[in-house]
Write a protein that binds this DNA or RNA. Structure first.
Length: 372
DNA sequence: GTAATTTGACCGAA
DNA sequence: TTCGGTCAAATTAC
């Protein structure tokens, strides 16, 4: 039977918790001179509540079936939300060997069969998993054939030529589907018109704790340290926030200040820097709100108090020096590149693409909160 | 040896 | 019958 882990319930809790957190920060930081920060939290709140509603609508539709109840005791698998019910003997366990796959999984004869009508509900439920899409641009010049990391660990399980599409579609599932019953999936489709552009469709929210599993692959004592950190609820929540944040990263470097950009500075190994239109690099003074170390900021010449990003060194595990910041080639004018030196020890927490980051100058953010 | 990817086959939906 | 999504054996990468 089930391990007490519920996919939709946890997703909902995650989303609502995030929304609440952003609302709190919004209230705490309300000030006319922090309008961009406020805007960021508003966007995150909207996103959280939209996803929550999506999950609720999805669940509400499916639970019209008498079999598909008890969301708190079902497994994480969308198709295994059929609850244990001694009265009608419709017991279906995710641990019982089954044949077939995917939508309308056919269970082995040792279990009671699901009739056709029930199948429709099961299939419908998976179909109605919360879905959202985003577009990611990559720099194919340097061999980037797939979108940059989105902060989660994915396992590719299929590729398919799509009718009318120039490029095949790739299918990914969460690496921790089996270990943590996480049923998030994504599809990646390259744009016909713009090969550097990828349409990524996510289905279902992550219910896994990926920091934990990253840590388990490391050697001790880092392993122990990261495990401890990963179990911190704040860390788990921050991971989700970071993923959301990362999903909104874009970059425009049309007015990159080359003089500033080519100077070296200490830098996170996983954030490679960003310059928006009319912005320039500036290595900032320590942020009083952060714990120790230096931080890197982006300051708008016109509104220096409102456009910035900072990263405390206390969350870096070893420092890096970044160099060779330069514009990308002409076919990808909105990207820039930078190289980092050395890779001492892995960073704690989520990892972001090293060499390339996109930042939309229209997307205000202040992510100091993520790292505290 | 283990984990990840590739790829042909299978299945359900339309 | 076609097509998109998934599985799982074979292959490749680490």
């Amino acid at each position: 039977m089930d391990c007490g882990f519920n996919w939709e319930y946890n997703s909902l809790i995650n989303e609502l918790t995030q929304g609440l957190e952003h609302a709190k920060q919004l209230r705490a930081s309300f000030s006319y001179d922090k309008i961009q920060e406020l805007d960021f939290h508003l966007q995150m709140i909207f996103s959280s509540f939209e996803k929550s509603l999506s999950i609720l609508k999805w669940n509400d539709t499916v639970t019209q079936s008498p079999l598909l109840i008890a969301p708190l005791v079902s497994t994480g698998a969308p198709e295994s939300s059929i609850s244990v019910d001694d009265n009608n003997n419709n017991n279906v366990s995710s641990e019982i060997p089954h044949v077939g796959y995917g939508e309308g999984t056919v269970y082995a004869d040792v279990t009671p069969k699901i009739d056709d009508q029930d199948f429709k509900y099961v299939s419908k439920k998976r179909k109605q998993m919360p879905t959202w899409s985003e577009q990611v641009r990559v720099n194919a010049e340097n061999g980037y054939e797939r979108p940059t990391d989105d902060g989660f660990s994915w396992r590719k399980y299929g590729q398919k030529d799509i009718l009318g599409a120039k490029y095949p579609r790739s299918y990914y599932r969460c690496t921790y589907r089996l270990m943590q019953n996480c049923w998030a999936t994504k599809q990646v489709q390259r744009s016909d018109d713009d090969p550097a552009l990828f349409e990524i469709t996510y289905k279902g929210s992550h219910t896994c704790n990926q920091t934990f599993h990253s840590a388990t692959q490391l050697k001790s004592p880092e392993k122990h340290k990261l495990k401890k950190q990963a179990n911190n609820p704040r860390t788990i929540q921050s991971n989700q926030m970071l993923a959301n944040f990362q999903a909104n990263l874009r970059v425009n470097i049309n007015d990159l200040d080359k003089k500033e950009a080519t100077s070296s500075f200490q830098f996170s190994p996983t954030f490679s820097g960003f310059v928006g239109e009319n912005l320039h690099f500036q290595r900032s003074q320590d942020d009083d709100n952060l714990v120790g170390g230096y931080s890197l900021s982006f300051v708008s010449p016109t509104t220096p108090e409102s456009s910035y990003f900072s990263l405390p060194s206390s969350h870096m595990n070893g420092s890096r020096r970044i160099h060779n910041v330069h514009h990308s080639e002409s076919d990808l004018p909105d990207l820039f590149s930078a190289n980092t030196s050395s890779t001492s020890s892995p960073i704690i927490g989520l990892e972001f693409p090293l060499e390339r980051v996109e930042l939309d100058p229209n997307f205000p953010f202040h992510n100091s909160e993520f790292f505290r």
